[in-house]
Design a protein around this nucleic acid. Sequence first.
DNA 1: CCATGTGTATCAATACAACAATACACTTGA
DNA 2: TCAAGTGTATTGTTGTATTGATACACATGG
Lengths: 127, 127
Amino acid sequence: MDASLFTIQPAAPEPIYRQLVEQLRRLIAGGQIAPGELLPSVREMAGFHAVNPMTVSRAYGIAEGEGLLERLRGKGMAVAATQKASHTQHQRLALLEPQLLELARHVRELELPAEPVLRRLTKLLGD
Amino acid sequence: MDASLFTIQPAAPEPIYRQLVEQLRRLIAGGQIAPGELLPSVREMAGFHAVNPMTVSRAYGIAEGEGLLERLRGKGMAVAATQKASHTQHQRLALLEPQLLELARHVRELELPAEPVLRRLTKLLGD
DNA sequence: CCATGTGTATCAATACAACAATACACTTGA
DNA sequence: TCAAGTGTATTGTTGTATTGATACACATGG
């Protein structure tokens, strides 16, 4: 597990610890981090991204509270064994629902037809 | 112009004044508010949505700084005359670009194929 | 003229995020 | 055994963001 898998944007309005939690949620759901796999240590992650170790610890703590991670004392944090290797496509899609709803609202406010939006998104998804 | 055109979610992490600014941006770009048209007064908007008048004023002030609105002293705030009646489809699509980029990143993190995402969005857009 | 309607400058209160510096409990592994 | 590695609790500080309460300057329109 490499700390470089994660992306942190310090300038974003979204607080750092929440950026980390949400990335964890998606990376685990997508199977890019397998159950049982060890995450980068708090100090390693903090050093790599030049943030405070306590900020990383906070993110890990929240993820643990959600059942995403589990603490292996003396070892570090690992993806919880209760997490299936990879969620079903339907489950992963559900994680995007709030974002899709917001996008749809914006499209309506802009009075844009669906077609050009779908075309642009298709392009961004690399099809 | 009716204050009910606007939507405010007080519980959202997004601050209220920014919710207002961004809605203004889209509603003007989409032509749902025409150039020269008067917006609801600070107090009317604040009363309707049960927020502080200064919060609305702040949003108006920012929108004025962006050239979206202009102050008619003694009258109120109006959509700037320099705003074309409605932006081109391409311009409006450009306003969605950051949101589409973020969505694409999340889709990749979830290791989702493009197709189900596009299908779901199509449905939400009412096709 | 002046009551009434604009927007807003100012100040205060509150909450939050991030950082810093420790100290601690625990496990591992040589 | 014990040094070195985990995560975390604690305390304090700093900076910033958001919202709110109040008072003010100004233009309108009867």
